[in-house]
Amino acid sequence: MLNFPNAKINIGLNITERRADGYHNLETVFYPVNIKDALEAITAPQLNFQSSGISIPGRVEDNLCVKGYHLLRQDYDISPVSIHLHKHIPIGAGLGGGSADAAFFIKLLSDMFGLNLSIDQMENYARQLGADCAFFIQNKPVFAYGKGDEFKPVSLDLSAYKIVLVMPPAHVSTGEAYRGVKPKPVNQSLQELVALPVTEWKHHIKNDFEESVFKNHPAIRGVKAALYNAGALYASMSGSGASVFGIFEELPDLSHLERENEVFYDV
């Protein structure tokens, strides 16, 4: 069985407070985009995991798909599977690729073994794997709050625009990003601000990670500036970086960025 986990971008990201459990409360808008991995599973004598495409760091047993299998195996008598993940979504990009793989794998296992898991059940499993994993179960634009795993629907459709995403040759760890940010309450919630016209977003919607990340990674700052110079209505780093996206009325020519960066057009 095969499916195609997609990435997400963050439209705005406010870190509002540090929690007693060590996490941070935040608010953001998750929006799905058309950059995809390919994920396949078939029944096998024993569980195994293989990957191709972009190299995936870390141990196999720490991969979120493998962890997702073990999570469902605790509650359901499912057979071992052979997993193949073709990795196309950039890693360390703020695009949620690993979380998407985990959530789509939960959906794949539910279909493959006829578990008929409900949306709530799948989201609850996904939340145990990562703060943004649960978003990818329904995979629709949401206002996310709490740790980033509580959602309210938002009416947001950017299909009339062209979204271009640029991945510079940089890697920003989530830990690095959080160390450089100072939580503070917001005056106006993103849930309200995202309802403004896209042409107004650059005056009102920000990503709290940008200030410190840009200091440590000036190339990322340069990509954002280049997108505005190319005519973006709004440009922002996604999540904790390193990718930056721009929203345009027409597809821009970013050939000057392609020499040193990976550019994804019309996502």
Rank of each mutant, 00 (worst) to 15 (best):
166 V>Q: 10
28 T>S: 15
112 M>T: 15
112 M>E: 13
18 R>A: 12
201 W>R: 01
146 G>R: 04
150 E>H: 06
139 N>S: 06
41 A>S: 14
209 F>W: 00
65 C>Q: 06
239 G>E: 10
65 C>A: 12
179 R>W: 02
136 F>H: 05
106 I>G: 03
259 R>Q: 13
223 V>E: 11
51 S>V: 05
131 A>S: 15
14 N>H: 14
50 Q>Y: 15
267 V>N: 09
51 S>M: 10
258 E>D: 04
254 L>Y: 07
211 E>Y: 09
128 Q>P: 05
5 P>K: 08
205 I>P: 10
217 H>C: 05
167 M>I: 12
111 D>Y: 00
169 P>T: 13
90 P>Q: 02
252 P>A: 10
236 S>M: 07
196 L>R: 06
76 Y>A: 07
7 A>P: 12
264 F>G: 13
169 P>H: 10
1 M>F: 04
37 D>N: 13
32 P>T: 11
72 L>M: 04
11 I>N: 10
164 V>L: 05
114 G>P: 07
209 F>K: 06
182 K>W: 00
222 G>E: 15
23 Y>P: 11
156 L>F: 10
220 I>N: 09
249 E>G: 04
90 P>V: 05
73 R>G: 02
54 I>F: 01
257 L>T: 08
22 G>E: 12
77 D>E: 10
187 N>A: 03
97 G>I: 03
38 A>V: 15
120 D>G: 03
71 L>E: 09
42 I>Q: 14
235 A>Q: 05
73 R>Y: 09
162 K>L: 02
108 L>H: 03
146 G>L: 02
184 K>F: 00
253 D>C: 15
226 A>K: 08
126 A>N: 05
148 G>S: 12
151 F>W: 00
29 V>W: 02
141 P>M: 10
217 H>I: 03
171 H>V: 12
209 F>H: 07
26 L>V: 08
261 N>I: 06
176 E>M: 13
99 S>L: 01
171 H>T: 13
212 S>H: 07
206 K>F: 07
37 D>H: 08
115 L>Y: 01
166 V>T: 04
69 Y>Q: 11
237 M>P: 03
135 F>G: 08
146 G>W: 00
184 K>Q: 14
191 Q>E: 14
158 L>I: 11
107 K>M: 09
81 V>H: 13
136 F>D: 08
164 V>F: 03
22 G>Q: 06
189 S>V: 01
19 R>C: 14
55 S>Y: 05
52 S>I: 06
82 S>P: 01
88 H>D: 15
85 L>V: 11
127 R>A: 03
97 G>C: 03
34 N>C: 06
18 R>S: 13
84 H>L: 15
79 S>V: 12
168 P>I: 02
201 W>S: 04
184 K>P: 03
213 V>M: 02
107 K>I: 02
159 S>T: 15
230 A>D: 11
232 A>V: 04
241 G>S: 07
231 G>W: 01
121 Q>H: 09
50 Q>V: 14
136 F>N: 13
142 V>D: 10
267 V>R: 06
72 L>D: 06
82 S>F: 04
233 L>C: 01
